[in-house]
Amino acid sequence: MPQLNLALFQARPAFRSADEALSDLDLALARAAANGANMLVTPELYFSGYGSADAVRAAAQAQGSPSFQAVAKLAARHGVGLVLGYPEMSGGALYNSAAVFDGHGRFKSNYRKVALPNDFERDCFNPGKGPDVFEFQGIRCSVLICYDIEFPELARRAALLGTELLLVPTALRAKWRFVSDAIVPSRAYENAMFIGYCDYAADETNSQFSGASTICAPDGQHLCRAAGPEDLILATIDTAAAQCRKSDFDFLRDIKRFDIEAWPIARIA
């Protein structure tokens, strides 16, 4: 069964210029390559930093922009695939997006966040349309971003498309640590998939983020977890584990037995 080594770059929170983002990304990809990683995931809106409308608009990239091309070259130089959180400008509209490159720097996929949870995001971004599937080293992958994972319907949609590895750039606040502790492993278990959930670092000066990036297995277990500060964590994604989980309970198969849409909805007067 296909395998890959997945790395999460739990980066320090910062509002970055394009040059700063590329420099930090270069170092992170070098570290990932040195540790044998095949793919690296950054946090949500890594290319701009999270929470400032001005920073987001200043850092917004169109696909094919010089900075976008520079990111592709970095992935190719280090031989590591990349899931990059960035603000995307397309047709005059702004999206909270994640671009995927393979280890040769080839563009593989682009995902636009669906669920926009706060005034900052709703004022800046347009919503996307939901997950697609792409193949990376023989593994079927999809992307969601942050709040998207809190809706079981979106993860389930990805699972029904055949996703084996769900990649989730996030900017999770410390007060919602429950998401990384409990919801993410639950999504992995109920959909028999791996999930890489990559947050910003948390330390004495940047305590608003959870700093609890995690890679979860299809049995709902945390394979590895970050501890707060800037960190690079890695785990091996072995798709045989998904088949093993399904041999006990296959929710995706068994749910077909239920005609849930036909169930009556009780109403209270």
Rank of each mutant, 00 (worst) to 15 (best):
A7S: 11
N118G: 05
A242P: 02
C141L: 10
Y46E: 01
G228K: 05
N206K: 08
P131N: 04
P218Y: 11
R257S: 14
Q10L: 04
F120N: 04
R156P: 00
P66T: 07
A240Q: 12
D102V: 14
A226D: 03
P229G: 15
Q69F: 04
K113C: 12
N96C: 15
E20W: 02
A75C: 09
A235W: 06
G64C: 04
L6C: 10
S180I: 02
T214A: 09
E121F: 09
E204M: 11
L45P: 01
A76E: 14
A269K: 13
P117C: 07
G79F: 10
H78M: 04
F9I: 03
E121A: 11
L25A: 02
Q221C: 03
F134K: 06
D181L: 14
C198I: 02
A226Q: 00
A212S: 09
L167D: 01
A227R: 12
G51N: 08
C124I: 04
A93I: 06
A62S: 15
A202N: 12
Q61S: 09
D132C: 03
R12N: 08
G220K: 00
R57G: 03
V100Y: 09
L234W: 00
N110V: 15
I268G: 07
T170S: 14
S213R: 00
D102K: 07
G103L: 07
S23L: 13
